[in-house]
Write a protein that binds this DNA or RNA. Structure first.
Lengths: 226, 226
DNA sequence: TTAGTCAATATTGTTGACAATATGACCACT
DNA sequence: AGTGGTCATATTGTCAACAATATTGACTAA
C-alpha cells in the first residue's frame, strides 16, 4: 500500500502495512501497551524492520512511543476527532477546487461511474456500513489525487484518511445518511465537471461540515461513544 | 527538537534531528545519491538508528528511498513549492481562526511581544534575511500551536514548515518585504486579540497568498531559480 | 561500433546478540 | 499503615556480522 510502484517490497514496508491496517481496524486497541516482541511474533517479523515501521507510524501520529517504555496506539478524544474534520474541511475544499481545475475528462467520467456503483450498492445492500465507508473513501481518494497537488494528496491519503477510517471502524457505524451524502457527492462532481473550482470548494466544505455535525450530534445524543 | 518533553533522547532522535536540519540547511544536496555509511561517518551514528531516522524522514516526504538503491533528498520543482503555499493558505487560515477562539490572553501578549522584537530586528539589522526568516517562522509557529488543534499543529510544524524552510535556505533570500509582512502580521494579531476568528482567517489567507505571489513573481522574473 | 548479457562489487536489508533503562515489587523507615 | 528507596527483571535501544539485491563494468556478439 505504501509504494506499489517499487519493484521490491521490503519487510519494513510489510510491517508498516500490517501495523497500519491493524491499527485502523482496531485490532490493536488504543491506549494498550504493546511490546515489540509480541508484535514480532504476531506478524512474523523481526525487530529491525518492525522498529523502522514503528518510527514511521509514530511520525504519522498513529502511535506514540516513549523510550524504554514501549509503544501504544494513539487514543483520540471526541473533540480531537472533530478537529480532524475541521482540517479535512479546508484541505479537501482546496483539493476539490484544484481537482476542478486539473482533472482530466476521463477522470471525471470515472468519478461519475464510481458514484453510480456507489448508488447501486446503497440500493442493493441497503447500504451496509462497510461498503458505504469504502465508497465514500474512494470518492474522496479520487479527488485528492485529482488535485494534482502532490503534497496535498500525500497529507490527505497518508495522514488524515487513516485516522478517519480508524474511527469509522471503531464506531462500526457509517454516517447513516448515505442517500444524502451521495447527493452531495453528485453535486460536487457536477461542479468539477463544469470546471467551477470555487463552487466545488464550497460544496466540499459544506459536505464535510455536515458530516462533522452529524457525528457531533450522535456523540452528544450518546448514540456512539469514544 | 522532536520530543523535548521526553526524559531520554535516543540516538534515533538525534539522527533524525541532525539529518532534518542538514536537509533543511541544504548541506545535503537534493537529488544527490547518498550512502548510509557515509551518513554514519558524517554524523557519528550507527546504521540502526540512522535507518530508523531515514524511515521517519521518508514518511515526512523529505527524502525518497528505493530499496537497495539508496536514499536521496527530495528535489522539488517551483510549481510544487507554489502548491505548498496553497496548502499553507487554507491550513494556516484555519489555524488563525481557531487561535482567535482559543489563545489565552497571555499567549496573545507574547505574540505581540514577538512582533515587537521582530520589528527591532528589522530596524537594527536592516532586516538580515536569516533573522527575518526566523521571526516569521516564530510567528506562524505560535499561531499553529495556539490553535489548540493537535493534528493541525503537528502537520504544520512537522511537515509543511520544514519544507518551506528548506526552500528559504536554498533560495538564501527572504521575501524581501519585511515591513509589509510585519504589518500584515500585526493586523492578524489584532484580529486574534479581538477574537474575530473569521477576520483572522481571512487576513492570514491573504498574507500567505501575497507571499506566494511574491515568490512566484521573483521566479518568473528569473531573480531566483530552483 | 553498439547493444546486450553476465558477473563482480559495493551497498542495502535483515538478523541475532549485547548494553542501557524504565517498570514493578519488596523492604526498611517514618 | 503509608511512604520512600533500592534492587531484580523485563523490555527497549544499540551494535556488528550476515544475506540479498541493484549497480557498474567488462566482454561478447551482431
Amino acid at each position: 500500500m505504501t509504494e506499489l510502484l517499487s519493484t521490491t517490497y521490503t519487510r519494513a514496508d510489510e510491517a508498516f502495512d500490517c501495523l497500519q491496517t491493524a491499527i485502523v481496524k482496531g485490532e490493536l486497541a488504543p491506549g494498550e501497551k504493546i511490546g515489540e516482541l509480541e508484535l514480532c511474533s504476531r506478524f512474523n517479523l523481526t525487530r529491525g524492520p518492525l522498529r523502522e515501521a514503528l518510527g514511521r507510524l509514530e511520525s504519522r501520529g498513529l502511535l506514540v512511543r516513549r523510550p524504554h517504555a514501549g509503544v501504544k496506539v494513539v487514543s483520540v478524544s471526541a473533540s480531537e476527532l472533530m478537529e480532524l474534520y475541521r482540517i479535512r474541511e479546508v484541505m479537501e475544499g482546496l483539493a476539490a477546487r484544484q481537482a476542478a481545475e486539473r482533472m482530466t475528462d476521463q477522470e471525471i467520467a470515472d468519478l461519475r461511474a464510481t458514484l453510480d456503483t456507489h448508488e447501486r450498492m446503497i440500493d442493493e445492500a441497503q447500504g451496509q456500513a462497510y461498503y458505504q465507508a469504502e465508497g465514500d473513501y474512494d470518492f474522496h481518494h479520487r479527488i485528492a489525487t485529482g488535485s494534482r497537488n502532490t503534497k496535498l494528496a500525500q497529507m490527505l491519503l497518508g495522514d488524515l484518511y487513516y485516522m478517519v477510517r480508524m474511527y469509522r471502524y471503531r464506531l462500526s457505524t457509517s454516517t447513516g445518511r448515505p442517500q444524502r451524502a451521495l447527493g452531495e457527492h453528485r453535486r460536487i462532481v457536477e461542479a468539477i465537471a463544469q470546471r467551477d473550482g470555487e463552487l466545488a470548494e464550497f460544496l466540499m466544505k459544506r459536505h464535510i461540515n455536515a458530516a462533522r455535525q452529524n457525528i457531533e450530534k450522535k456523540i452528544q445524543e450518546g448514540e456512539i461513544s469514544i
